[in-house]
Design a protein around this nucleic acid. Structure first.
Length: 457
RNA sequence: GUGAUUGUAGCUCAGUUGGUUAGAGCGCUGGUUUGUGGCACCAGAGGUCGCCGGUUCGAGCCCGGUCUUUCACCCCA
């Protein structure tokens, strides 16, 4: 006998967790569909050639590779073994587990370009796998929840992303959150304005940490990366910006007035705000943050990040615009914009704020408890009738001690039990007991149905 | 990938400088109640002390390795 265990960084989801996860996912799905997004699923495994080289060197190491079936050594010569992993790997593995949902989506768009009508709006909710070292809130298997629009440069998509985020968070009852927005071209403009043109890559990586490590350490990191002292000092006005959106945007307009890229980025953000205002949207959570960078290098336009206020968890959603989704798959010039909800983190947030509703865990509403053989047969006929009436019901599957059956119902949080024995069978009634109040009465079947359905409404 | 850290009953955890038969609370099973749960009382089951090796007369405790947990870094959701 062996002690069972889970692979590192993976989890089971029990009934309570599933009910709660579905509560979150339903809110998200519902919102995506309301905004005209269509659901897509792709296989858990992709050809390794589809995946490698898309996530940088580090990403390739984090890919889970699938050993070829059968004799996976047959392509391999003894000499190959000495040549290292790069030579051996393609000969023993041709498939890998998906690392995110964006690359499979790009593959799908490239493969189905003829069938799709653009702009194409899709959402996708599936697990992804990374051979990372697990930590709190970081797993080797986790769900991503992506929505993207491809085939248009319209800023309406960006504006709608704000609306969808607002709708989901409101639906989940999250009281205070902030949608941080910035623009990659504005970051390029900032880079230009401080005399470090073309260095926005390392600049982004460093200033993205501003929240976490503070201005002093960011300066240190910039020095290490070869930014001149005057560039770093040039950045300092951005660390303490005016609070209001309008004031901020005009301060930035001033800062990057000599950079064409910067002006264009800022103008796009302004256009987003205009669209939202025309749609009558609230801009309460909209926060323009010129120091927001986000790691992913393929973003080229607006970028987003959502933080829930007053919780210990980091960002729970994010995304941005990219120019060229499918270029590597032979379909150039497909622009798009997408974002993603971190389901696991949202779960932690709702738990921390105690925002899960009671109903998210409810199941059966009536348990029939047979106390003798006649009662069991009688309960069989009742079971069908109750279910036909729309009452989620089950029958305790054996004639056991009533005590045991009541305990079972109590633990499963079933609100009502119907006790059936010879007596009830003879009189065509049911002894209905409310386990919350302890009240019990003998009712006709119609009365039972009425009572249980009435309670529901 | 780097550096730390954790592991004892189903769960949360005690366990003395290394010393006989490893404990508690909760949970579980049965009973006090042959048609009435939560509460109470009584009784019981349940452990290769993560795994492998070493030191020792003797290891849950010391040492090495390995797996696992958690944390920081790198990176990321």
């Amino acid at each position: 006998m062996q002690k069972p265990s889970l692979p590192k960084g993976t989890r089971d989801f029990g009934p309570l967790q599933m009910a709660r996860r579905n509560y979150i996912l339903d809110a998200i799905k519902d919102t995506f569909q309301l905004f005209g997004y269509q659901q897509l699923e792709t296989p858990a495994m992709e050809n390794l050639s589809t995946l490698t080289g898309k996530y940088g060197e580090e990403g390739d190491q984090l890919l889970f590779k699938i050993l070829n079936s059968g004799d996976f050594l047959k392509e391999l010569s003894p000499a190959d073994l000495g040549k290292g992993a790069a030579v051996v790997l393609p000969k023993v593995a041709e498939k890998g587990l998906r690392y995110d949902l964006t690359v499979p989506f790009a593959r799908y768009v490239a493969m189905n370009r003829g069938e799709l009508s653009f702009p194409f709006k899709r959402f996708q909710i599936q697990p992804v796998w990374r051979a990372d070292r697990p930590q709190r809130g970081r797993y080797r298997e986790f769900y991503q929840c992506d929505a993207d629009v491809v085939g248009t440069r319209s800023l309406l998509c960006e504006a709608e992303i704000i609306l969808m985020i607002q709708r989901v968070f409101t639906k989940l009852g999250i009281p205070a959150f902030s949608i941080k927005v910035n623009h990659r071209q504005l970051l390029a403009g900032i880079s230009e304005a401080i005399g470090a043109q073309g260095m926005e890559g390392p600049l982004c990586v460093a200033i993205d940490k501003l929240d976490k490590i503070g201005w002093e350490k960011v300066q240190e990191e910039l020095r290490q990366k070869g930014f001149s002292e005057s560039s770093i000092q040039g950045l300092s006005p951005l660390v303490q910006l005016p609070k209001g959106r309008k004031e901020r945007m005009s301060a930035l307009g001033d800062f990057i007035k000599h950079s064409e890229l910067g002006r264009k980025g800022l103008q796009e953000l302004q256009e987003m705000v205009d669209l939202l205002e025309k749609m009558g949207a609230s801009l309460e959570q909209f926060e323009f943050d010129p120091m927001l960078a986000r790691g992913l290098s393929y973003y080229t336009g607006a970028i987003f990040e959502v933080k829930v206020l007053n919780v210990s968890i980091g960002s729970v959603s994010g995304g941005g615009r990219y120019d060229n989704l499918t270029g590597v798959f032979g379909l150039p010039d497909v622009p798009g914009v997408g974002f993603s909800f971190g389901v696991d983190r949202l779960y932690d947030v709702l738990e921390e704020l105690q925002l899960f509703p009671e109903e998210a865990s409810l199941g059966t509403s009536l348990l029939l408890c047979p106390v003798d053989e006649a009662g069991f047969d009688y309960a069989l006929t009742l079971l069908t009738q109750m279910r036909q009436a729309g009452i989620a019901s089950e029958l305790y599957p054996e004639v056991a001690k009533l005590k045991k059956q009541l305990e079972f119902a109590f633990k499963k949080q079933i609100a009502h039990v119907g006790i059936c024995g010879q007596e009830e069978a003879n009189s065509k009634t049911l002894s209905l007991k409310n386990l919350t109040t302890g009240h019990q009465e003998k009712l006709s079947l119609d009365q039972v149905v009425q009572k249980l359905l009435g309670n529901k409404i």
